[in-house]
Computed example of a mutant assay.
Amino acid sequence: MDEARRWIPYCGEAPGPEAWLSRWNLDPVLGACLLLLAVALWRPAPGPFATTGQRCSLRLAWAAVVVLYVSPLCALSSTFFTVRVVHHIALVLGVAPLLAHGLQGGLSRLPTPLWSSTAVAAACFWTWHAPAPYAAALSSTVVYALMQLTLLASATVFWLAVRRAAPAAAMGAILATTVQMGLLGALLTFAARPLYAPHFASTLSWRVAPLADQQLAGLTMWAPGSIAYLVAAMWIGWRWMRAERAREPDIKPA
């Protein structure tokens, strides 16, 4: 128990199965920020967003943040490394592309070199899933905020770069990202021992071994995470083929 109490992350102490559904995050700072964003996103005036689609993307991103950081899912991520991984995948594959679409007009002057953006996003993802930085984030609110913001910002810039790149280059960057996420997932899945000290005891009240939790987290990265990137690459390829067919001149029979 003393070891478990060393790790009190932003989402609170790891809850047991009898308490987690009542563990909503009522952080006043986060609540005030979300309220101000809601006023901006749902006000009748057009605001700074160029299209209805962009506004809808930002609203969806806002809703996803509420689910991730206000609902009991936040507290559950203190218990299970797998849920933390789901959080991070939701950030980089859900919230980030929504922000990239919703903010593309406001960020039009932001430089987004494709391969540099890809490398930075991958480096952030690997860094925060290394045991020492991960443990630091779960013992400090400031480091936790840095982890979340850098993951989200680097992924948003990556998706902006993908949107601006030629289709072939965009698919190449996505496939490279798929490979690196799958590799990290495989390393976690086949590790011989648990690596993340904050979860050495947090899963035991659920009768889940920390190594089993880590293996499931690795599989989550390896399969659903990689598949989501592959779907994005396939979508780009499909739109590319449609555009190429539309450019072809109509061939009329003689």
Rank of each mutant, 00 (worst) to 15 (best):
M1A: 14
D2V: 08
E3N: 12
R5H: 10
R5I: 02
W7Q: 07
I8F: 13
G12R: 05
E18M: 13
A19C: 04
R23L: 09
R23A: 14
R23G: 06
N25T: 08
L26R: 13
L26I: 05
L30R: 07
A32V: 08
A32C: 11
L34G: 05
L34V: 03
L36I: 08
L37V: 03
A38D: 04
A40C: 04
A40Y: 00
R43L: 10
P46S: 12
P46T: 06
P48K: 07
T52H: 05
G53E: 13
R55K: 07
L60V: 10
V66N: 13
V66I: 15
L68W: 06
Y69P: 03
Y69F: 15
S71I: 09
T79G: 11
T79H: 12
T79S: 15
T82N: 15
H87F: 13
H88D: 15
L91E: 12
L91Y: 03
L93W: 03
L93Q: 15
G94Y: 12
V95E: 07
P97Y: 07
H101C: 13
H101M: 06
G102I: 10
L103N: 02
Q104S: 14
S108P: 00
L110Y: 03
T112Q: 02
P113R: 01
S117I: 00
A119E: 00
A119F: 05
V120M: 00
A121H: 10
C124R: 01
F125C: 00
W126R: 07
A130W: 10
P131W: 01
P131G: 04
A132Y: 01
P133T: 08
Y134L: 14
S139H: 14
A145D: 11
A145K: 05
A145E: 12
M147V: 01
L149S: 14
L152H: 06
S154A: 15
S154I: 07
F158G: 00
A161M: 08
R163I: 09
R164I: 04
A165G: 13
A166C: 10
A169V: 02
A170I: 11
M171P: 06
G172Q: 14
I174F: 01
A176I: 09
T178V: 10
M181K: 00
G182E: 03
L183V: 14
F190C: 02
P194C: 02
L204A: 06
V208N: 04
A209L: 11
A209T: 11
A209R: 09
L211G: 04
A212Y: 05
D213G: 03
L216S: 10
L219Q: 12
T220W: 04
W222L: 15
A223K: 06
A223I: 15
P224K: 09
S226N: 10
A232D: 03
M234T: 04
W240H: 15
M241K: 11
R242C: 09
A243K: 09
E244M: 12
R245P: 01
R245T: 04
R245Y: 07
R247F: 03
E248P: 00
D250N: 00
